[in-house]
Design a protein around this nucleic acid. Sequence first.
DNA 1: TCCGCTTATAAACCCCTATTTAAAGAACAC
DNA 2: GTGTTCTTTAAATAGGGGTTTATAAGCGGA
Lengths: 210, 210
Amino acid sequence: MNKDEERLTVVNVVASTRVAEELDLPDIAIQLNCEYEPEQFPGVVYRVTDPKLAILMFRSGRAVCTGGKDEQNIHTGIDRMIKDLRKAGITTWDLKDVEIEVQNMVATYALHYPEDYDGTALRDTLDMKMGTPLAGLPRKLNLNNLTFHLPFDKVEYEPEQFPGLIYRLDHPKVVCLIFGSGKMVITGARHKDEILEAVQIIQDELADLL
Amino acid sequence: MNKDEERLTVVNVVASTRVAEELDLPDIAIQLNCEYEPEQFPGVVYRVTDPKLAILMFRSGRAVCTGGKDEQNIHTGIDRMIKDLRKAGITTWDLKDVEIEVQNMVATYALHYPEDYDGTALRDTLDMKMGTPLAGLPRKLNLNNLTFHLPFDKVEYEPEQFPGLIYRLDHPKVVCLIFGSGKMVITGARHKDEILEAVQIIQDELADLL
DNA sequence: TCCGCTTATAAACCCCTATTTAAAGAACAC
DNA sequence: GTGTTCTTTAAATAGGGGTTTATAAGCGGA
């Protein structure tokens, strides 16, 4: 595992699937004791404790699983839900016919100075005194500068509305929320590879500002 | 029945009539258990279940029937309403004196490529692979192109406000809502002939874009 | 004299509702 | 000062509401 992967944490995986031809939601809500307020939202909310997940089930037999840390979590949750449905006498598809598609992954990444960076702290700060070598340490950012350095039409930064700078990449097609602390949130990816690609691209663009 | 008539569906017929010299609306609302909120709207709403219709009755004895799929539906509804009024002891005109005038017809039409069209799909799409002969298949439209092809002063197209292109014909005097899917809504006609005429005119104008 | 009210109806878009999750600010409450 | 709660982003799912057009009736308001 390289530095990028170490500093990257997938915090949420969302996937969609179909577990039955159709589902009787009012019945399921009662049988499995799930949240169901049809006038507020058409789906039933089925919750799994460990891993902590929330699965939304719909009348069409389709379902959306959120909260996973990886794809394995999602499978575990869906399998458990199907077993629960069957125990309650509800007809579902065979497990082998249930296909799961990851639709979104959210990750956080903490920016650091390159290991071979030769710059030093320009002045004393709360956690570092002037002259400390910065190589390998967490890197803070000046978002106002960044706004001008990145492609204008891909960036949105309105600190009064939201503290993060919003950066939309075309390839991979993901969105990054970049914060002054040097931490960022990457979302919209369907595979972890896309997240790592995005991180690499941003690191390269930020290298110019060192 | 030709192709145009097969692809055309009349979804709503509105007609006006007069069933009495005058009507005591508060009394009718109670006797026939109808909706009546005079401070909100001056008419009583009389509903028929099958066919599903809504008839508005006014103090003047006039009435408006909406929701019919054809003129026969309208007659059925009016007849039933008059019988109901009489059963409740309310005086109405003789059925023979009740004249019904269709005031508006709404229809949908699904555009298709001509049966003798020799074009083929230009590229792969969700439902068709490149090269498939298009003759007789549903035809999608590029409304932006259409905007420039049809008479400027008869067209309105503001996709951010409404997804359909609004095309006002003078003869027949109807309005067509044309959608990117190739489906359209024709309204404002008093006879089915006018709807078929309008469809033919539009097909001719669209032939230029093939 | 217009305007809105109300009724029905299709087309296909928008937005809202709900679920998850991190980041870092502001705004409240206690 | 510690809490919640809100802001933003992505994605699937799916109901509900709104948008537009035509048309009659008749009552209230500028």
